[in-house]
Each structure stands twice: as C-alpha cells, then as structure tokens.
Amino acid sequence: MAQLMASTNPAFMNGVPELLVLRLLRSREMYGYEIVQAIREETGEVVNLAEGVIYPLLHALERGGALTSRRTAVNGRSRIYYALSPRGVSRLDELTGLWSRLTQALHQVIKGEGYVPGV
C-alpha cells in the first residue's frame, strides 16, 4: 500500500495505513487528498503512499462503520469528506494499544534488552 511497504515487507506494514487514517481523522474531517498529504507530513514522508490506494481503505473503513462520509461541492467539484464514527474511535483505541505494545517490544529487542510485558 505505501511505497515503503512496496519496497520492503507489505505484511509487516499491515494495519499501518488504517491506524494513520483513523488517527488523522480523529481531530477533523478530511477528504482523500488531504489525508494523503497529512500522512506524508506527519510521518516525515517515511510512509509515502501511492496516493490513489487510500480510497479502497477509506471505502472499506466506511463500510465497516469506522468512518462516515458526506459529499460536498467545493469550487464546482464534488468532494467526499470522511469523519471518524464512534465505532472508529473504538477501533483507533484498539489499534493504538496494539501498535504501542508492538513498537515498545520491538524497541526493546532492537536495543538488545528483551521485552518485558507491562514495562
């Protein structure tokens, strides 16, 4: 999904775009282009999406009830804005907890200290 993923290990990055999208939409609603640019900026371009593939993820999250969408006309163009739903907030909390534990564990392993749950 991301260029980073394409050049490294897609399976390893599973769930990252979902986490980023949900986190970004927690503060305000955005449309696709805005989301992709925000991901680039917030991650210092480390996660650099092939931009169009954000939309299948957005559609799937909306289908799953994590996002809501509304269509609005801007400068004669029809834009679809996405916002986080209550179910999306729960999903974000779940993913945040999961990734926090994972990154903490990986950090410990990389430092050579081993991972101790709850530390």
Partner: peptide, 19 residues
C-alpha cells in the same frame, strides 16, 4: 505517477472483498 498505476490501483480495490 503519484496517484499510482492502473495495476496497483485496481489490485488495492479488488483486494477489498467487503466492497
């Protein structure tokens, strides 16, 4: 180029079985 090529864009969508 930034948007992605047809193959990548098609595969990303088709992979979403729920859609």
């Amino acid at each position: 180029q930034r948007l992605g090529d047809v193959d990548a864009l098609a595969e990303a969508m088709i992979a979403r079985r729920e859609l």
